[in-house]
């Protein structure tokens, strides 16, 4: 677990490599009918859940990757596969040149994992005691431990709760303390599963900044899952979308907007309650003399539209804005939902 364990690790290049990863689970399907009690006990019914269906992707050192998808898409399963908790049913997972399950003890000394709904902190002990516990169990050299404690205290703001019992921390404080603890051994890769779940706006923003600061050094690769797309867009340059166990998109957010519809909005204020007719822009609604249009894709010529509107009536004010990324994603999810084959879990 010392730095020497990392000798030979390249400073750049691929650190995560998933090839055709499939993961299936069996799920019990008990009947609620009293007459089926014996059958439930002796011959239960199962259904097979295909959590991942041949997912392939790679992540390079220093990248910050958002891993997104609707509920049940397979995000947490992927994080568990990448952190050595689960083995794939088929396909291969290699991280830092290792098999996370076969090389687990060596491997987990080089990664950090934070689950938003779980804590590694000792509940009835001060945060400092949990950190000391981590130092001994992870066998972290004193110099690195002191340095990283400094990072946790100063950058993550764990100092304020250093001597507070973990159970008395607010959710935001706990998450920061957990993140600081995950960083103590200076992991090369950080897997964050829903790290902002349940946090308020300020705590979310603070968490996002922290991850940005950590990743700015370029030495930590971050893979983060979340349902908050705005947060992911701020955090990550790249997003991998997974849907029903399939990789649905892998690229940057700008391309995602282009590919799935930019959904820009144009709002015109005129001197008339009748909205101008603008070919290529779809009227969303009018409120008095304010008229809102949906613009399709990134290729809409706003200047031409304004000229056209001006020819029909005086334009008093103009606003254009991009639809929030959440709206884009909601559109994608709805699209997937409509096209999902029947019976898919």
């Amino acid at each position: 677990m010392h730095r020497s364990d990392r000798a030979g690790t390249p400073a750049s290049g691929t650190v995560v490599e998933c090839r055709s990863v499939c993961k299936t689970f069996r799920q019990r399907q008990p009947s609620e009918r009293p007459r089926d009690v014996l059958r439930n006990l002796l011959h239960p019914r199962f259904r097979t859940i295909e959590a991942l269906r041949g997912v392939s992707f790679t992540v390079n050192r220093g990248e910050v990757v958002a891993y997104a998808g609707p509920n049940g898409a397979g995000k947490s399963t992927t994080i568990k596969l990448l952190s050595g908790m689960l083995a794939p049913t088929s396909g291969s997972v290699r991280v830092l040149g290792m098999d996370p399950v076969a090389d687990r003890t060596r491997y987990v000394g080089r990664i950090g994992v934070v689950f938003g709904q779980r804590t590694e902190l000792w509940w009835d002990h001060p945060v400092a005691a949990s950190y000391e516990w981590k130092r001994v169990v992870w066998d972290i050299p004193r110099e690195r431990f002191d340095r990283m404690c400094g990072v946790a205290r100063d950058i993550l703001g764990v100092g304020e709760s250093w001597n507070t019992l973990a159970r008395e921390l607010s959710l935001g404080q706990r998450m920061r303390a957990d993140l600081g603890m995950a960083m103590l051994h200076e992991p090369e890769i950080l897997f964050l599963d829903e790290p902002t779940l349940g946090l308020d706006v300020l705590a979310k923003r603070s968490m996002t900044r922290l991850v940005q600061q950590l990743s700015a050094t370029g030495s930590v690769t971050v893979m983060v899952t979340s349902h908050d797309m705005n947060e992911l867009e701020q955090l990550a340059g790249r997003v991998i979308f997974i849907e029903s166990g399939n990789l649905a998109y892998d690229g940057d957010f700008a391309s995602l907007r282009r590919e799935f519809g930019d959904l820009r909005r144009l709002v015109l204020e005129t001197d008339s309650a009748t909205p101008p007719s603008l070919p290529g822009a779809e009227l969303v609604g009018s409120q008095g003399m304010r008229h809102e249009y949906r613009l399709g894709g990134g290729g809409a010529d706003v200047a031409a539209l304004l000229r056209l509107a001006g020819e029909q009536c005086p334009v008093l004010d103009v606003e254009t804005h991009r639809a929030p990324i959440d709206e884009v994603i909601a559109g994608i999810y709805e699209h997937w939902g409509r096209n999902r084959p029947a019976g898919t879990a």
């Binding site: 050595g84 003890t105 987990v108 994992v113 992870w138």
Partner: peptide
């Protein structure tokens, strides 16, 4: 057990 699996030591030792 997930908490143990993220520790860099054999499960039996934990």
């Amino acid at each position: 057990l997930d908490h143990i699996l993220v520790q860099p030591q054999p499960v039996w030792m934990a």
